[in-house]
């Protein structure tokens, strides 16, 4: 198990290094002069030269690459062009909010989706199964940002049950939770249906396997077989699919943040794009990449915990 984890961590580091290289290349492959883009078309040539020097853009590309990587290694992501604050601090403040939103969304989707899938698989083609199937496929098709807008209109603007904007007062947990309910609902709803369908299909397949017949032949009850012996196997592919889909979940969270004006990576990236604030944009993209890699790493480790056969290869 330890060697498996170490190998997966090693692979993740490799992916991270490749991501940094691609990110750096992208910045310099994009056509156009960064100084003109940053300062606007009316900037004087003198201003542009000063800008290039301050950003180190007058250096040869390999030197720039070296600076980029060595600054990354010390945790320096550059400074915000507008506020002159370190990007690391901005990203560091935004990251927990986005992670909280994404995990809350996924968490409640799992809490609802897994039992729904189990009920469906235990009674396939029953009325309950059909109803769950109908609800699932309906919500899967709903984009989270669209849902966010409707939730905002219905519950925050018209009914005034829940707050519309922001993430709540710092330090006030109750207020923060109130601010989390609607965005988390928007982020997770599509996943409820998705997870319910995945669990249903996977559990139905597992229940066909020969070992399930063995347990039935020993008189173990169908519910116990499904929950104790089939569900852990059925969850293996579900966990893998969720891991791959976490990127999707993050981008959903990012859009929902923009709709709810919630501080987070989404708002940060959105503002950075609209104000052409490239160090902040690079910082958010890098951290999002890191988040994605961390999510995949935890998926791999969780899969190995569920499936002893994965741990075998050292």
């Amino acid at each position: 198990m330890i060697s498996y984890v170490l190998r997966q961590v090693g692979l993740s580091v490799g992916v991270l290094v490749s991501a940094i290289i691609i990110l750096f290349s992208l910045i310099y492959l994009v056509p156009g002069d960064p100084a003109t883009i940053a300062l606007g078309p009316r900037a004087s040539e003198q201003q542009k030269i000063v800008f290039r020097q301050s950003m180190g853009l007058d250096q040869p590309v390999p030197v720039q690459a070296f600076h980029f990587v060595s600054k990354l290694a010390t945790g320096d992501l550059g400074t915000d062009l507008l506020t002159r604050q370190p990007v690391l601090r901005l990203v560091g403040a935004a990251l927990p909010k986005t992670v909280t939103l994404a995990l809350t969304g996924l968490g409640w989707a799992l809490l609802l989706g897994v039992p729904m899938g189990c009920i469906s698989a235990m009674r396939p083609d029953s009325m309950t199964d059909r109803l769950i199937g109908l609800v699932s496929t309906s919500v899967v098709a709903l984009p989270s940002f669209l849902l966010a807008i409707y939730l905002l209109i219905a519950f925050a603007v018209t009914l005034r049950w829940l707050p519309a904007m922001g993430a709540g007062e710092p330090g006030d947990i109750g207020d923060q939770i109130q601010h989390l309910i609607l965005p988390a609902f928007a982020v997770g709803l599509g996943w409820v249906g998705y997870i319910a369908r995945l669990v249903r299909a996977s559990l139905l397949e597992t229940l066909q396997e020969n070992h399930v017949r063995t347990y039935r032949a020993f008189g173990v009850s169908d519910t116990r077989i499904a929950m104790r012996y089939a569900l852990p196997i059925a969850m293996i592919p579900v966990v893998a699919v969720i891991g791959v889909g976490l990127g999707n979940l993050l981008s959903g969270a990012v859009l929902v943040e923009v709709v709810f004006s919630r501080p987070g990576l989404g708002s940060l990236a959105h503002d950075a794009v609209t104000t052409r604030n490239s160090p902040v944009l690079v910082g958010t993209v890098l951290v999002t990449t890191l988040l994605y890699i961390a999510a995949n790493l935890s998926t791999d480790i969780l899969s190995a915990l569920l499936d002893p056969r994965l741990r075998k290869e050292a």
Binding site: E209, H211, I233, P308, R309
Partner: peptide, 9 residues
């Protein structure tokens, strides 16, 4: 089939 008769996990 002894290969599938027992729960793998």
């Amino acid at each position: 089939d002894p290969f599938t008769a027992l729960n793998p996990v």
